[in-house]
């Protein structure tokens, strides 16, 4: 750009040429200055072009402010706490169509925690269960849970010991599936209630998703 503008007469308008460009709409009125966007432009197209340049310049200035994870609001909620039980495998199986087929479902309880077994010792305790909602073309015909291991919760000699039947570490549920020919997505749910040696968490459910290919 040149250091100082060069005034240009343009019919009854006046623009100031700065290098190859124009300072839009600056015109003198005697000794005063005024902004007048229409001063330099004698056509609609030129006006739109100016508007485009203003918008483009504004977007370049504003977009970086929104650049901090601009679509984070479109993401799901903040990360949830890790579940006490995780489903490990299998994620995909091939079975014979229309024939009951055993499937071993592997789960893992987080270190330091235990979950009630499928048959807890007290009826108030929440058992671990596996359920599959009605799904066309596939049925869960059997679920055999392993026996729980004994866990005794006792504090001091003056408190009664609470004996529990629990799963810790890895455990396997022996299931049986019958599927019609084709591909099916099993979306079962494992419900459990976990505790540590001195706290309990509310009952929780995790998805158990298996891609079943029946041939």
């Amino acid at each position: 750009m040149q250091a100082s503008p060069i005034p240009i007469q343009n019919a009854d308008k006046r623009c100031f040429k700065v290098g190859r460009g124009f300072i839009p709409g600056i015109k003198t009125m005697g000794s005063s200055w005024a902004l007048a966007p229409e001063a330099c432009f004698s056509s609609t197209l030129a006006q739109i072009q100016a508007l485009f340049l203003i918008c483009f310049a504004s977007s370049l200035a504003i977009l970086p402010l929104s650049a901090q994870a601009p679509f984070s609001s479109l993401q799901s909620h903040p990360a949830a706490k890790p579940a006490a039980v995780a489903y490990l495998f299998p994620e995909q199986i091939s079975i014979a169509a229309d024939k009951p087929t055993p499937v071993d479902l592997h789960f893992k309880v987080a270190a330091g925690l235990h979950v009630n077994s499928h048959t807890p010792r007290s009826e108030e305790l929440i058992p671990t269960t596996l359920k599959l909602p009605e799904t066309p073309g596939i049925r869960l015909t059997k679920t055999d849970f392993p026996p729980g291991t004994d866990f005794t919760l006792a504090i001091g000699s003056d408190t009664p010991a609470e004996k529990l039947s629990v799963y810790t570490g890895e455990f396997i549920v022996h299931a049986e599936l019958v599927a019609a020919k084709g591909e099916h997505l099993v979306q079962a749910t494992l419900r459990y209630q976990a505790c540590s040696s001195d706290t309990c968490m509310p009952p929780h459910s995790i998805p158990v998703a298996i891609d079943v290919i029946a041939k």
Binding site: F52, C55, F56, S58, S59, I62, L63, L65, S66, Q68, A69, P70, F71, S72, S73, L74
Partner: peptide, 17 residues
């Protein structure tokens, strides 16, 4: 461009919220 600007502004507001 105006639509993009609006979306960026809305996303930024949601993000701050």
């Amino acid at each position: 461009i105006l639509a993009l600007l609006s979306l960026a502004g809305w996303a930024n507001w949601q993000n701050r919220k």
